[in-house]
Design a protein around this nucleic acid. Structure first.
Lengths: 225, 225
DNA sequence: TCACATAGGAAACAGTGTTACCAAAACAAA
DNA sequence: TTTGTTTTGGTAACACTGTTTCCTATGTGA
């Protein structure tokens, strides 16, 4: 099904057809491949020039086609943004997966927290798109929330395990504890990106301090003295 | 100097002149009053219809004048946004002032935190403008940071006092601790406003939990058992 | 092969921030 | 008061944005 060749009647201006090759090939395939091509183009612009550079016209220009395609495939710009959000979730989940699980659960929490910070540094544009409100219209729908949950799944497993082992109080809901940690760390990253916390080192210091304070409190029960 | 009447030659269409009265009066006064009038109009639109409704044209329409005035007075839209930011700082500072200082410093911290949450609820548009990145261009300048510091001054005094009394460790810089608390609480509010934390009650629960965890850790030193 | 459905391009619409141009008003000096 | 200069502000345009309308060309089923 995927093996479709370019139309054989390239009688005139073959060089011009070559330029449009990738798009022309994709449009012959199923719409799913075309969607992927559009998302890739948008993601490239996002990472190269930031969230505000991701406009419908810029994406279509890079694709070498009309803006109509994007509306045909994604309804509106928000639909495209949702796909980019899910892409970001994959990247974040990947970052979490790369963190080696430490037998010390406290250390593991700190490592995951540090990975979240690094994600914000390495994929700033994605972070702003996903959590920074770069697209004011964008609100996470069911699929987006699903992607978010998959991304921070490691964190949820960790807290849950720590609760089972009695290292963290099970008085509170696991999901609420995860949200608390997530929101606090996000606050530091977001305020830093907004220019409220000074330079990177200062912000990173505050970030680590936030992690330490939260961790101490969470793991306090297991260490009476 | 402020007592300036409308020009006496209202020979034709006096009702039309009446509509423009406030603006026409103000333009005869000093530019400072005119600036205030513009900021008030923008603030009204901000609170009535949200941050995205605050456009240069909408403000000028409400003023009954051309957009040029706003550019004459504030250089660009960001200049107007900065004034709105400072307005928001005043409102936030006012909220903090209304919190009665409790002799129990921990309780006082919780009260200030709750006031911050309430500010976000009551002045959502202001909050989004100030900290939510509603205007992507906006980055706080020196004056904005000054206004911010004035607003959260109560929090700084509180932490500083607690450190002097030995209730909070003075190992860490006071400013860093304030930033840590501010950022964590902001994270919950911002994530809630982004639609990531469910409804108000759920978000408020997480907010209180964040405050509790931070407070416990901060005040831990003074209460060994 | 023919009719139909659909996809996609060009251009327009309604918005946005911003600026160039020019007339009118305010102010200075004579 | 009258003149000349500077500032002020309105109109209209420019360069963008997201989105839609219209129409043509293409692919598809009978």
């Amino acid at each position: 099904m995927k093996v479709i060749l370019i139309s054989s009647e390239d009688k005139s201006s073959p060089s011009t057809e070559r330029v449009l090759k990738t798009y022309q090939e994709a449009r012959l395939q199923n719409t799913e491949n075309l969607r992927k091509l559009v998302v890739d183009a948008a993601a490239a612009i996002l990472q190269e020039e930031g969230p505000e550079a991701v406009t419908v016209r810029r994406v279509s220009q890079r694709m070498g086609c009309s803006t109509k395609i994007i509306y045909n495939l994604f309804v509106n710009k928000e639909g495209l943004a949702q796909q980019l959000y899910l892409e970001g979730c994959k990247l974040l989940a990947q970052r979490f997966e790369e963190v080696p699980p430490s037998p010390d659960l406290l250390q593991h929490l700190l490592d995951l927290g540090e990975a979240f910070w690094q994600f914000g540094q390495d994929y700033t544009s994605y972070y702003k798109l996903m959590f920074g409100g770069a697209f004011a219209e964008f609100k996470p729908d069911a699929e987006s929330m699903q992607g978010t949950m998959t991304a921070i799944h490691r964190l949820l497993v960790l807290i849950s395990t720590a609760q089972e082992q009695g290292q963290i109080s099970d008085q509170e809901e696991t999901g609420n504890l995860v949200s608390t940690i997530w929101a606090s760390l996000h606050g530091v990253i977001h305020l830093y990106m907004g220019g409220f916390l000074g330079d990177v080192e200062a912000a990173h210091t505050i970030y680590r301090q936030t992690m330490m304070l939260l961790s101490e409190s969470l793991f306090a029960a297991s260490k009476p003295e």
